[in-house]
Simulated assay, not measured.
Amino acid sequence: MSSSAAQEVKNLTSTEGGSITLPDPVLTLGFLLYGKSNIAVVINSEIKLTEESFRNRVFWDKNTGLFTIIGLQRNDSGSYTVDSKTKGVLTSYRLTVYVMSSSAAQEVKNLTSTEGGSITLPDPILKLGFLLYGGSNIAVVMNSEISVLEESFRNRVFWDKNTGLFTIRGLQRNDSGIYSIDSKPEGVKKYQLTVYEPVPEPGVNRSSVSAESCTLLCFVKKSEATTLSWYRGEEILNQSRTAASLPLTVHKHNFSSSYRCEAANPAENKSFLVNPTVSCSENISDRSTSESSRPTSWLFIIPMVVFLSVAVLLVIWMCFKKEGEKE
C-alpha cells in the first residue's frame, strides 16, 4: 500500500460496552475484515459471520448497507476494513476502544422491580439499535423489527414499535445487573436493574390493652430488604429496617385517628389499615386484627345447628305419628 493510500485510514473511537457503526456501506456483496481476518461476508444481500468472537455482535443493515459492532471490549481495538465489491471500494479504519470514564459511569440509571414482575426501560429505540445485558447483546431492532438473540430472554423481552420501548417480563433474581440501550444515532443509555423478592403481606396483632392505651404489633414474614413502618395519616411514628415485627402504643385519646402498618422494599410496598377503636376493644381476643375484624363464623353456625335440630325432631315426630295412626 502506498503512503498516500495509507493516509486514507479513518480513525474511529468508542468506549467499552458501547458500539460503533462503520460509515461506508456494502450494498449487496462485500466483506468486513479485522486485521487480515475476514469476520463477516455479505452475499446476495444476506450477512454471514465467519468469526465466532463477533457472533451476536456484528450486524449489517440491508437498507443502509452499514456494519455495526456492539458490546465493544478493549481488545476490539485495531484495524477494520470494509471491502465493497459492488462499488469496488476498500475502506480502512483504525478503531480505538477506551475505558469508560468515572464521570460517564455516573450516568447509569437505577431501576427496581420484583420477582415475577416486569420492567420497561425508559429510553426508546425507534428504528435501529440494541439491548445489551452486561456485555452480551440480547436483542436487536433493525428495520423496525425485533430479534431476540439470547435464549434465556426469549418470550420475555418485548419491543413496542409505537413507543420504541423495551419491556422485560417474568423477572428473576438473576436478572439483576447492567442493561444498555444502544440507539442509533442517539447513543448508549445504561441502567442498573435490581430485582427484589416480593414484599410479604403485613399483619397486625394486639399485644396488650389497658384503660388508657393499647399496644399493637405489626409483623411480617421476614424478606430481604423489607422495612416495617407505622403511620398515622402520613406521619411516620415508628420504623425498622431489620426487625420482623414492630410495636406501636396508641393512647385512648388517639383511638379515632387512622393508622396503617406498611411493609416496603425499594421496589414495592404493602399496607394494612388499623382502626384502634375496633382493634383495641376489650371484647376482641388477642389475635390478628385481620382475622378479628371479620365477622366470626360461629354467629352463623349456631342458628343453623338449631334449625337443623328442630327439623330432625319434627321428622321423627311425624314418623311416630304415622305409625300410631296405622295401629
Rank of each mutant, 00 (worst) to 15 (best):
S3P: 01
Q7M: 09
K10C: 02
G17R: 06
G18E: 04
S19D: 05
T21C: 08
T21S: 11
D24N: 03
V26R: 01
G30M: 02
F31D: 02
G35S: 01
N38S: 12
N38Y: 07
A40D: 06
V41W: 01
I43C: 00
I43D: 04
E46R: 13
T50Y: 00
E51F: 00
S53Q: 13
F54P: 02
V58W: 02
F59P: 01
N63T: 14
F67C: 04
R74A: 15
R74L: 15
D76C: 05
G78E: 07
S79A: 08
Y80C: 08
V82R: 02
K87Y: 08
V89C: 10
L90M: 13
S92D: 11
L95P: 02
T96L: 12
V97L: 10
A105I: 14
L111D: 13
L111T: 11
G116E: 05
G116A: 10
G116P: 10
L121V: 11
P124K: 09
G129N: 05
F130C: 01
L131W: 04
G134W: 12
G134E: 14
G134T: 14
G135Y: 03
S136K: 15
N137K: 04
A139W: 07
V140R: 06
V141F: 08
F153Y: 12
R154Q: 15
F158L: 15
W159L: 05
D160G: 03
G164E: 03
G170L: 09
L171A: 07
Q172V: 14
G177C: 11
I178V: 09
Y179A: 12
S180Y: 02
G187V: 13
Q192F: 14
L193Y: 11
Y196A: 06
V199T: 04
V199Y: 06
V204I: 14
S213Q: 11
T215I: 00
L216E: 00
L216H: 01
L216A: 03
L217N: 14
F219H: 05
V220Q: 13
K221N: 12
A225H: 04
L228C: 03
S229D: 07
Y231V: 00
R232D: 04
L237R: 10
L237M: 10
S240L: 10
R241W: 00
T242K: 08
T242F: 08
V250A: 05
H251T: 07
F255E: 08
S256C: 03
Y259F: 15
E262M: 09
A263N: 02
A263S: 12
A264D: 02
N265W: 02
N265K: 06
S271A: 09
F272G: 07
S279A: 14
S279N: 05
S279R: 01
N283K: 15
S285Y: 01
T289W: 13
T296C: 04
W298L: 14
V305H: 02
V306K: 01
V310W: 13
V312F: 07
I316N: 15
W317R: 13
E323P: 00
G324K: 10
E325I: 15
E325D: 13
E325Q: 15
K326W: 08
